[in-house]
Design a protein around this nucleic acid. Structure first.
Lengths: 252, 252
DNA sequence: TGTGAATGTAAATAACATTCACATACCTAA
DNA sequence: TTAGGTATGTGAATGTTATTTACATTCACA
């Protein structure tokens, strides 16, 4: 009985009542603390106040628990991205950038989910439910890219929308993975990960022919406006340097 | 003695003679097979034909072994990138793209090193040797970005060279991590990771004002190849499609 | 050749994943 | 209401791993 943490019999009899949920939550907490590798099945059981064997009634093994967490993560991720995309309102480009920020915010706010999803070594294509959830989440990015692709100015080479989506995903994941989380593998940055990603996406979009000039702080430029050519040279003589995407706020 | 694999006493007496190297190599093989999480200290010892306690004479613990591998990985990585960069020959842009391909090739050819470096959960800033090696490797990308920054056409807003380097690194890592390796976390792609990254980098460079159809704007020797001309539209289908940024070779 | 340092071994401890026989609680059909 | 089936949790096992400790062997070298 030494494993029984704080649970009293009065509170929880022989049956836990909601063990599956409790285990998922406990695992999430443990991953947040010690990374996806550091989490142990036995620890999750301990947190939930059950014997080390109890979890096997709900998950085939440790990996299935991890896989379940990853799946939930993708579901929440999809919801977050969907909300950020907001079907392209108020305009495609600014909504697209908002998706990028939402991506990073998710990685930062839910590091446990993010690790489980992308860094836990769980194979996605083995579990159909998991890969479906992953596909749905990526579908948001892809849908946004499709809309963006339809707006690329003529006269500019345009990659397939899928490829654009993959580029954005790759850069987002790269930034999140290398610089985005506070805990593990921290690398010092002279800027915030958010600023880094935003600037990268803006440059990328400019490479696709989108006008990405910003005025003042951070409102959206309309994507349908006539292209004001990208900013004046920063090397020229700017009396008031354009507040481009690469400001220099201190990193977190 | 059951752990003694195939080693004969005649070959290796009481002392192994080169255990540290053997352990590093064994660990590398194990990581390549089963991922950085799947590798066990005991297994490495078994592979080397020594007792489970022997490795502790050479590494404080399992993590130090992993850390050593990551450090070596960064050293090899630096060498590879240095060679690819070739000090910007024959011209800065094509050399830059070659660095991108070399990045991906390293991730693909040395998945064990790459995992140890970026996905093993080893904290970089704890070990000074490790973080120094990491910095040196990134220094190559940064140096390349500096040179590139000096060439950005006037009239285009330009981010700091460091930021450019971080963008390229992020996209490279994102592509490598999400799509680059054959074994773990495989995601199906309608193109090769190499093509994906190359196209992404080209678009990014275009966003910085670089002409991606190579003409004598600022470079001495264009890249010996006819430019990957971004066709005006993906709808256009030339009779012999050039190996443009977004070709469609089947993924591996 | 003797000695200390380096290197390897064996045994022990503790934690973990996983399985299995068994215990207990819940649920439903008679 | 109750008997039995099912879901859920327990305890005790097995086998593996990380890590430590006391001890053994070999090497380098004075």
């Amino acid at each position: 009985m030494s494993w029984r943490k704080e649970q009293r019999r009065a509170e929880r009899g022989y049956h836990h009542g909601n063990l599956k949920e409790a285990l998922l939550q406990a695992a999430l907490d443990l991953i947040a603390q010690k990374g996806p590798a550091g989490f142990t099945f036995a620890d999750a059981a301990r947190s939930a106040g059950v014997s080390p064997a109890a979890p096997y009634r709900h998950f085939r093994d440790r990996e299935e628990l991890l896989s379940s967490i990853a799946q939930r993560g993708f579901e929440q991720f999809e919801a977050v991205l969907t909300k950020a995309w907001d079907d392209g309102r108020p305009d495609t480009v600014s909504a697209f950038e908002r998706v990028g920020r939402a991506y990073l915010a998710f990685a930062r706010n839910e590091p446990a989910f993010y690790s489980a999803m992308f860094e836990s070594g769980v194979p996605i294509d083995v579990n159909p439910m998991l890969s479906a959830a992953s596909e749905r989440a990526f579908g948001i990015i892809r849908a946004a890219a499709e809309r963006l692709a339809a707006l690329t100015p003529p006269g500019v080479a345009r990659p397939p929308a899928l490829m654009m989506a993959l580029h954005i995903w790759s850069m987002s994941h790269g930034v999140a993975s290398l610089f985005g989380r506070g805990d593990a593998a921290r690398r010092k940055l002279p800027m915030s990960a958010e600023d880094l990603l935003e600037a990268g996406v803006l440059i990328y979009l400019r490479g696709l022919g989108f006008p990405t000039e910003r005025k003042g702080t951070d409102q959206a430029g309309a994507a349908t406006q006539p292209p004001p050519p990208p900013g004046t040279s920063s090397a020229a003589s700017p009396p008031s340097p354009p507040p481009g995407p690469w400001g220099h706020k201190p990193a977190t």
